[in-house]
Design a protein around this nucleic acid. Structure first.
Lengths: 190, 190
DNA sequence: CTTGTTTTGATACGTTTGTATCATAACTAC
DNA sequence: GTAGTTATGATACAAACGTATCAAAACAAG
């Protein structure tokens, strides 16, 4: 009944995500997104709305992606798996253009956007809760005490790891921190 | 021999620092800085150069300020003082406009500026080294093993604390993390 | 007072930004 | 084929940015 789209939505969102991840929100221009995706201005805005709406879509996709990674590492896991999770974050990157060099898109966005819109803030909150929940599950099932405090501690440490990666543009910069943290987690086992 | 300046340099730098701290580099316009300082465009640029040069001046001033804080806490200090240092960072803010709500200007800048100029990168490097050195001194004098790894770990954790503060716009958001970290530091004492 | 030097203030310019406009193209249902 | 609907592409526009320009102002030294 109407002209069909010339692109696959998921692919476009993924390409846009990488650009926002690498450059940040402000430094990513709508024109650059047109170039990256190969779409025209009207096609992009027709399908995904304006820049801020597209960004929220990207954040949601990022959160879902990270949920998959969290689940694969920590679903029904023990403290040893949790320790390995932190070591994995700081594992050496594969090649010069490994996106992991950019740290965490959500953390980066929190720092960049002084005044977040409500939808963006909601994504950040959900992202945070996602980590806390997973950490809490592992800690509880491992019979550790002081679960709430430790979960908050692990989240803060995770953000610290991402900070070091972002600064050095290299995951291995966080290896000392990650190894130390992994040892601390292992020490919680009775 | 020439027309005298109508301002005190330190006061201007301090006012500009607060604005960059609160809004970030990009969101701070040169016009806003004119308004904040009460100076005209030519006065500002004449005294401090263009926006990026003024920013480097601010970063240097911030680093010196933080060095004072670090020294007052950690010069010749023991592990207990180090533990209290982390708890102090997360101490409740005094009032709604406490600048500590904004986290750390240097950390914020690292996240915001995808492509840092060389002078900015140099400031960040010096800032990082300043923390590492102080941590290392305390750890060494306390007879702790694995000093290098632990110093890196403490730096990453510090950045994690600043991340949590920045996200929540409130130092107390980092209290669980800071308390946990303080306990870990105390546990290093033999 | 005059001269020389620096500071100051008003105005304006060129770029870049996100986005609006609008005609055209591509498809489906009938 | 025809009508109806959505996608596409080229062009343009208003706003905001950093910064250049240039004349006027304020002092010290002679």
């Amino acid at each position: 009944m109407a002209r069909p789209r010339n692109f696959v939505e998921e692919e476009v969102v993924r390409a846009v995500m990488m650009t926002f991840w690498r450059l940040g929100y402000d430094a990513t221009t709508y024109r650059e997104l047109q170039k990256i995706t190969g779409l025209g201005l009207r096609s992009l805005s027709n399908a995904f709305g304006e820049k801020d709406e597209l960004f929220v879509t990207v954040l949601r996709a990022y959160r879902v992606m990270m949920k998959g990674m969290l689940d694969s590492f920590l679903e029904g896991a023990d403290l040893e798996a949790l320790a390995q999770f932190f070591e994995a974050i700081a594992a050496p990157s594969e090649g010069e253009d490994d996106i992991r060099r950019e740290g965490c898109l959500m953390v980066n966005s929190v720092f960049e956007l002084t005044n977040m819109s409500d939808p963006v803030a909601a994504e950040v909150t959900a992202y945070r809760a996602m980590f806390i929940e997973r950490f809490r599950d592992v800690l509880t099932q491992s019979g550790v005490d002081d679960v709430e405090t430790k979960a908050e501690y692990l989240l803060g440490s995770t953000w610290g790891i991402f900070s070091q990666i972002r600064l050095a543009k290299d995951p291995v910069a966080a290896q000392p921190m990650a190894r130390m943290l992994a040892d601390i987690v292992r020490s919680w086992a009775q």
